[in-house]
Design a protein around this nucleic acid. Structure first.
Lengths: 175, 175
DNA sequence: CAACTCGGTTCAATGAATGAACCTAAGGTG
DNA sequence: CACCTTAGGTTCATTCATTGAACCGAGTTG
């Protein structure tokens, strides 16, 4: 899907965007990256994605400048994938997609998103009604809702049971 | 992708939404429906999608209540696919995806979206700065930009060269 | 030294997408 | 009437992507 031979004739920036992030699993990888997931194994267990597909998606997202591969320890050599500004810019899209899913598929409230500095729940497009501004992604606090499994199997889901800010790295060693 | 056996374990409304509209071609079909495309053949020539895939996507979108199949003439029997409120609700998502595509993939201005009643260009989330409101989709005017091919091959693209409102049905017979 | 973790790659089997051909029902033209 | 065209599909063989399991190598822990 990312080879220019597909949506290339579309003359449309929606089609162009989908060339990059429209493949299966890709937007969920970006979502997890915004939630603070950084390590290969954490993506793996949280998404339930085949290893080969994850490796391919991480590589593609890195090549597109949406994630950045970064060494975080030398011995043993370990890399993490950190979301870039270009990836952070996908937050409004993911936010509106999530809202559509909840409103039109009748899903229970799984997570709330609030303005961390004032506690107001975010509006449809990520804005704070109290402050009258679009909330910067690092100031968005993610709070678990009532529909969430209280005792999930994987350590990433367990870490996400606590309120936390977007982008804040997840440490699965103490979960 | 739409069988519940894929993203089903995600506990996430983003994953739920992607179950429905995350398949290849699906969001482009919805985009075209918002642009006013209604007929099988118009989707076909405008998207360059294989016939079998288009038939499958139209059926799935109809089953999900995003499009509505409606007979518009009896002899010969002809049906059109009209976007529903649930489909219209995907406009903010498509809008933000398109913005991301233009800003981060360096695409030329292909189309502008304006508030039809006052002429102001839409903000990032489809709001009108002049009126201070989120513009209802039927009041969004789509205007071709400088990057667009001035003489496209297919009649749908030709019809889209004129400024027009979203949802306004495209008539390819006089294009 | 054995076992384990992390971050992958390789491989066979399955499933989806593709493009061409075909089909049906109706209408238009000569 | 014979023939061609249009709209809206279906069917089919080929190609391509996804899947899940197995394997691997570097390094670390017991």
């Amino acid at each position: 899907m990312a080879l220019g031979k597909d949506y290339a004739t579309q003359e449309c920036s929606i089609a162009g965007a989908l060339e990059i992030v429209g493949e299966r699993w890709t937007l969920l990888v970006v979502r997890d990256a915004l939630y603070g997931v950084r390590r290969y194994n954490d993506f793996l267990v949280h998404l339930g994605i085949p290893r080969a597909v994850l490796a391919s998606r991480l590589q593609a997202l890195t090549a597109e400048g949406i994630l950045e591969k970064r060494r975080y320890q030398e011995s043993p050599p370990r890399d993490e994938y950190v979301v870039t500004d270009r990836g952070i810019a996908l937050w409004p899209t993911l936010r509106s997609l999530g809202r559509w899913g909840r409103e039109h598929l009748g899903e229970a409230r799984l997570r709330y998103f609030r303005h961390a500095t004032c506690g107001t729940e975010l509006g449809p497009y990520g804005e704070c009604a109290t402050c009258g501004t679009v909330v910067p992604v690092p100031d968005v606090e993610m709070v678990p809702g009532p529909g969430l499994d209280p005792d999930p199997a994987d350590p990433v889901s367990r870490a996400l049971l606590k309120p936390r800010r977007l982008l804040e790295p997840i440490d699965t060693r103490h979960a």
